[in-house]
Measured scan of single mutants.
Amino acid sequence: MDALKSAGRALIRSPSLAKQSWGGGGRHRKLPENWTDTRETLLEGMLFSLKYLGMTLVEQPKGEELSAAAIKRIVATAKASGKKLQKVTLKVSPRGIILTDNLTNQLIENVSIYRISYCTADKMHDKVFAYIAQSQHNQSLECHAFLCTKRKMAQAVTLTVAQAFKVAFEFWQVSKEEKEKRDKASQEGGDVLGARQDCTPPLKSLVATGNLLDLEETAKAPLSTVSANTTNMDEVPRPQALSGSSVVWELDDGLDEAFSRLAQSRTNPQVLDTGLTAQDMHYAQCLSPVDWDKPDSSGTEQDDLFSF
């Protein structure tokens, strides 16, 4: 819950932080000083300027060897085509990944977070970031790969997607708890209302004896509580940590079903599988986004697919 609360507080303090972009060759504004600060901008989305290598189908939802083989196929196909790589912007948030063309600003792909089953910074092609997700059109699994400016960037994108998945799962947990509370309150309110109706004398007997209905007592009954809980029953509950912020979080049926399955089948359902080692994760978390744009010590960066 700490990640969720800190993310909400950060967004309320400075929503404009989320509009910064990394990996864009110096076009961005001043960047936060450390990885923790940038992680807090996830709610509205972190932007990464990358190059799209392509996509291939895979048979399993996750796995280092599986993704490595898929990336190898994608890279080989991209090299064989001889075409310049498409420059894209990857927007990562707890909602998922939005992929747009840098030149036309046209939407290429919009992947809900619950469809993503794996992401990684490839070991062999260490400047490549990739994720595996279920197609929104059918049940097939797709591996999408992107060329980053350097290994640090690939690791940073991988960690960002993993963190977005974690925050999304926490949102789901909060929403589920809130819905259970509202359902319980609604049920209790309905029981109270039913009890009051059972003990209320029939209207005919009131008229016969000349008694008047006590409207004041009726007004004191917990009807307002019942209506408050039943009027918006169809509205999706939102985490309290975000009250007053500009973010509107809505959970669709697909996300609810997917996270429910994860909660039942996995020990740590909030953790998205990645190909990063503990050492890689520690190294990337210690980086400032400013470091992502620094040239690798191995030599001059080449803006070309064939540089790796």
Rank of each mutant, 00 (worst) to 15 (best):
A241V: 10
S265Y: 07
Y118D: 02
F146W: 13
N102Y: 10
F48I: 02
R261L: 02
C119W: 02
L251F: 04
S16P: 09
P32F: 09
Q20R: 12
W35C: 12
A121Q: 02
A162K: 04
A195V: 05
H144S: 10
T104W: 07
T231A: 12
H144T: 02
R261F: 05
A7F: 12
L272Q: 07
V290W: 02
R27M: 15
E216L: 04
K84A: 08
S186H: 01
K123P: 14
V161N: 00
S67V: 12
E59P: 13
T41K: 06
P32S: 07
S243N: 07
C119T: 05
S21D: 15
T36C: 08
H125F: 00
P15T: 02
L255N: 04
L53Q: 00
L31H: 12
E177T: 06
W22T: 01
S265N: 11
R266P: 02
N211S: 07
E170H: 04
D126C: 00
K176R: 15
Q279N: 11
L11D: 01
A168V: 06
F259W: 03
H137K: 14
K123R: 11
A18G: 13
A241I: 09
V128E: 00
P94H: 02
A221V: 07
L31A: 08
K5H: 02
P289T: 09
R151S: 13
S21P: 11
S67F: 11
K179Q: 13
T77I: 07
D296L: 04
S288Y: 08
S227M: 04
L141S: 10
A7V: 05
G244R: 11
D183Y: 15
W292D: 06
R151M: 04
M55W: 07
A185V: 08
A168L: 08
K72T: 13
R261D: 06
K19Y: 13
Q20K: 15
L147Y: 00
L262S: 02
V192A: 06
Q139L: 10
T231E: 03
N232I: 05
L147Q: 00
A168R: 04
L50N: 04
K84F: 05
F165H: 02
P269R: 03
D183M: 09
L305M: 09
H28D: 15
L223W: 04
A3K: 06
E217G: 06
N138V: 14
V58I: 14
R9N: 12
K79R: 05
G23K: 14
S6H: 13
S175D: 15
E250Q: 13
A208E: 07
L255G: 04
G8I: 15
S205Q: 07
T230W: 07
K294L: 09
A241S: 15
E257K: 12
F171W: 14
E142R: 15
T158K: 05
Q302D: 02
T300W: 05
R95P: 06
S6F: 14
D101C: 14
Q163V: 10
V207E: 10
E235Q: 14
L53V: 00
P295T: 01
E301N: 14
D37F: 03
T149H: 13
K83P: 04
G25C: 13
A228G: 06
Q136R: 10
L203F: 07
C148E: 05
S81H: 11
A121V: 00
P269F: 02
H282W: 07
G299I: 10
E33F: 14
Q155S: 05
G8V: 01
S14P: 12
A145L: 00
I116M: 05
S81W: 04
P202R: 15
R73P: 01
W249G: 08
D122Y: 00
A219C: 09
E217I: 12
D37Q: 12
K51S: 06
T267F: 08
A208G: 12
F306N: 00
A156T: 04
L47Y: 02
H282N: 07
L242A: 13
L287K: 10
I74S: 00
T56L: 12
V161G: 00
P239D: 08
N232E: 06
E65G: 10
K220A: 13
E178A: 12
L57T: 14
T277S: 11
W35R: 09
V92N: 00
P61A: 06
L11S: 15
Q279R: 15
S140G: 14
K5P: 04
D304E: 09
V92A: 15
L43I: 15
T160I: 12
F48E: 00
G254D: 08
D280R: 06
Y118W: 05
L85I: 07
H144V: 10
A130M: 02
H282D: 15
V236G: 12
N102S: 15
G210L: 01
P239I: 08
P202D: 09
G244E: 08
H144W: 14
Y114L: 02
V174A: 01
D122N: 00
P61W: 13
K83V: 14
V75K: 00
A228N: 04
Q187V: 01
L215W: 08
Q302N: 04
A7W: 04
I116Y: 02
S112K: 01
T277R: 09
N232L: 05
D291V: 11
S117W: 02
T120S: 05
G96R: 12
A10F: 05
S21H: 07
K204L: 04
S243P: 12
Y118T: 03
E301A: 06
E65L: 07
D303Y: 05
L215I: 12
Q240A: 12
D126S: 00
G275K: 02
I71P: 00
A284G: 02
R182D: 14
S224W: 04
A164K: 08
D293T: 10
G54Y: 00
L141P: 15
E142G: 15
F48A: 01
M55Q: 13
I12W: 12
N105E: 11
A10K: 15
V226D: 09
A221W: 07
K176V: 08
L262A: 02
L242C: 03
S6V: 11
A164Q: 02
K5R: 12
V157W: 01
L66Y: 12
T225G: 08
E109W: 06
G23Y: 10
